[in-house]
Computed example of a mutant assay.
Amino acid sequence: MAVTAMPFDLSGRRVWVAGHRGMLGSAIARRLASEHCEIITVDRDELDLRRQQPVEDWMRANRPDVVMLAAARVGGVQANSRYPANFLSDNLAIQNNVIRAAAEAGVAKLVFVSSSCVYPRLADQPIDEDALLTGLLEPTNRWYGIAKIAGMLECAAFREQHGCDFISAVPGNLFGPGDYFDTENSHVIPAFLRRFHDATVSKADVVTVWGSGSARREFVYVDECADALVFLLKSYSSGEIVNIGSGVDVSIRELAELVAEVTSYRGRIEFDTTRPEGAPRRLLSTERLSQLGWRSRLSLREGLDRTYKWFLESHDAGALLRGYGADSASRDVGKLQST
């Protein structure tokens, strides 16, 4: 599909970053700081996005011109498997409440952040946007994927019925500063960084990785994704979704070896083939985004170095030894980035 730019002027606009305390939301806020716009946020203890009436009331009272919808309940394979109802119902509620309230309030533009798990498990690689709804989802994260599909379709439906300028973007696997470094419930890169760091500190002989290590994944540094999202906000208007990716994938084995280098781990890496490892490959086609004029520039290794540096600077040794994040994940059923 040929794509054309549709300029949107951000100057003087009030932009609500929904999910501003999450990894992606905070990166979006950092990126928007260089634009001539007003960033507005609201904390989770002030507004629960899962509750419809409070969201509608807040939207009417604050009247944002733009909504960047990055709020979601997120987590890795284990969290998705443990808490399917929460991953489905919470994300459906957050999306529906914000999208509907934005339409009713006359928001000029909304950007909905989806996920690459919306695509079929065995989609042709690299995955282009037309693969949506052409096959079965990966079972280990299908509940999250179904919710995100619904969010994209809701944006398209409001565009078709009401003329709302709502767009949807599909990032690859995100990582970077602000991520959730828990060995059990987080995504693969923060989980690896935490586990290999701990193994380095304790001088462990072996680190065990789930699966065979052959599954391949694409990873996108979060600040690059935020830049791409603001680029789309300013230049894209269509009911067609757009992938955001790095254009490069690696095997889980290769990722583990990279993380071992970054964390100076010198022990063995073993692979537990009795554990699930998700889809065999997930690499997004970025042709549509490239046609618009945006490309990834950061290597995976540089992104890992920056993320590990942030991790070391942000968590003192005491927090690491106490098992930072694990208890809060168990109490809160995964990670809710709704503020």
Rank of each mutant, 00 (worst) to 15 (best):
G22N: 08
E138G: 05
P276D: 00
T200I: 12
V262T: 11
S251K: 13
G213W: 12
R322Y: 11
L49Y: 08
Q291G: 06
L300V: 11
N96H: 13
A27K: 00
R331M: 05
L136H: 13
A215V: 07
S238I: 00
V201T: 05
Q125N: 13
G178A: 05
A108N: 14
D57N: 13
L10H: 00
V209P: 10
V209A: 01
G151I: 09
G106N: 10
Y236H: 04
G325R: 14
S246N: 01
P126T: 07
I28M: 04
Y83A: 01
L110A: 06
H20W: 09
R322T: 14
V42Q: 08
D45C: 14
R281I: 13
T339W: 11
K234C: 15
P177Q: 04
D124M: 01
S296M: 00
A101E: 08
A131K: 09
G12L: 07
A169I: 02
R50I: 04
A102Q: 09
E218G: 03
R322E: 15
Y324T: 05
S89N: 13
D165R: 14
E224P: 00
L24E: 11
T134R: 15
A256E: 00
V98H: 09
W210H: 13
N96K: 06
R13Y: 05
V333T: 05
V113Y: 07
L304T: 01
G323S: 10
A169D: 00
A169F: 08
N80G: 08
G293I: 02
G135D: 12
Q291Y: 06
A260I: 03
D332S: 15
V248C: 07
V66D: 10
R50S: 11
F231N: 00
R301P: 01
G163P: 04
V111N: 00
W58C: 10
Q52M: 03
G163W: 03
L10T: 11
D182I: 03
V201D: 09
E270H: 10
L321P: 09
A156L: 02
T41D: 05
R100H: 15
I241G: 14
G176Q: 09
Q78D: 02
R306L: 12
H162E: 12
S237T: 06
R275P: 14
W210A: 12
A215N: 15
Y308M: 00
E224R: 00
L233I: 11
H162F: 10
E287S: 08
G323C: 04
S115T: 12
K109A: 09
Q53T: 12
S168L: 02
L292K: 05
Q291K: 13
S246M: 01
W310Q: 09
E277K: 12
G75Q: 14
D198C: 04
R288A: 03
V3K: 11
S328Y: 13
Q161S: 10
A108L: 12
A61D: 12
